[in-house]
């Protein structure tokens, strides 16, 4: 065994920790047999370059050298905990968010959270994500239009704070392989871009893609009805030509802008937030199929939409004040 040592070193493998190598080798000598190095043997001495072998390396794996905690989706737990700290007063004292049925959200395993979407700059997404992360202690990935990927600064911050571009493959991996909670707003930009006179009237739920993903991933859909977001930043009118010129989905004129001036572009009204988690929907279909019946997808999608809509009407009937609930 001993004469092989220098030869191994000479082929230039692992130069990062030369001092630790001998101890590793003496600890596990049987692994350094020639059979593990086939089928491609390193050339004899004096190499110009390191010749890699096709066999798995016999040495211990190199230490991982990551310097940040940004995951493959762009989310950073560091950033998230900073955002949680900064956002907590808003959540607690400005919106005074109140949950009903939070226990219906599983503490482990993948699930697709589906909610209604409102407010010129939607305030429901951060409230839902913050609420679940602080109450249940598990991360929520929020799917959104890939418009965010195109936006400098905002897009990066959004991604670090747990936003993911809404691509079916992204959702599938998060739900099926990583068993995470994923939040999606099936109305898309049609929800937050509607004007105040249409408040709490759900738009079309896309083409039911969210149902298809949940079926394929084999996870339940958990509908959430949110009251309060509509009044936190109501849209009075839209400026479609400006939006077109800027290349963004919509440009709203909000009541906040009239009330607070330029600050109103970002400042919310302190509407009382109430969130109701509805019973999870399980699909009795086989996961991982190539495609699912379109009519079944649309029926399920419409059923979920109707349940959220019904819950919203009920919550609005019970609501005595926009500001105090």
């Amino acid at each position: 065994m001993a004469p092989r040592q220098p030869a191994n070193r000479a082929d230039g493998s692992r130069s990062s920790a030369p001092t630790r190598q001998p101890t590793k080798a003496t600890k596990a000598p049987p692994r350094r047999t020639t059979t593990t190095r086939t089928p491609v043997q390193p050339r004899k001495g004096g190499e110009l370059v390191h010749l890699p072998t096709a066999a798995p390396p016999a040495e211990a794996p190199k230490p991982e050298v990551r310097l940040s905690d940004v995951d493959e989706w762009g989310r950073s737990e560091h950033m998230r905990s900073f955002v949680r700290k900064a956002y907590d007063p808003v959540y607690r004292y400005w919106f005074r968010a109140e949950w009903d049925g939070l226990d219906k959200i599983p503490t482990e395993g993948g699930a697709l959270l589906v909610a209604n979407h409102a407010g010129a700059i939607p305030s429901d997404a951060p409230v839902i994500m913050h609420g679940i992360e602080t109450e249940l202690g598990r991360p929520v990935y929020g799917l959104a239009d890939n418009f965010f990927r195109k936006a400098p600064v905002v897009g990066t911050l959004w991604s670090r704070a747990g936003g993911v571009a809404a691509h079916p493959d992204n959702a599938y991996r998060l739900l099926r392989e990583q068993k995470q909670l994923v939040l999606v707003f099936p109305e898309g930009t049609k929800g937050p871009s509607k004007t105040y006179n249409e408040r709490y009237r759900l738009r079309r739920f896309g083409r039911g893609g969210f149902v298809e993903i949940a079926m394929r991933a084999g996870v339940p859909i958990i509908p959430i009805a949110v009251v309060g977001a509509e009044e936190s930043m109501p849209i009075l009118m839209r400026l479609p030509s400006v939006a077109k010129a800027l290349g963004i989905p919509y440009v709203p004129v909000t009541a906040n802008m009239l009330a607070f001036g330029p600050l109103g572009a970002l400042a919310y009204f302190p509407a009382k937030f109430k969130l109701r988690v509805l019973d999870p929907v399980h699909f009795d279909v086989e996961p991982n199929k190539e495609r699912y019946s379109r009519s079944k997808i649309m029926d399920e999608s419409e059923a979920i939409r109707e349940r959220i809509q019904a819950a919203l009407f009920e919550m609005l009937r019970e609501r005595q004040s926009v500001w105090f609930g």
């Binding site: 493959e72 989706w73 890939n146 418009f147 990927r149 195109k150 993911v164 571009a165 691509h167 079916p168 493959d169 992204n170 991996r173």
Partner: peptide, 12 residues
């Protein structure tokens, strides 16, 4: 492109 998935598989 911005429409890309996070991970490309070989069929994409």
């Amino acid at each position: 492109a911005p429409e890309d998935p996070t991970w490309f598989t070989e069929e994409m």
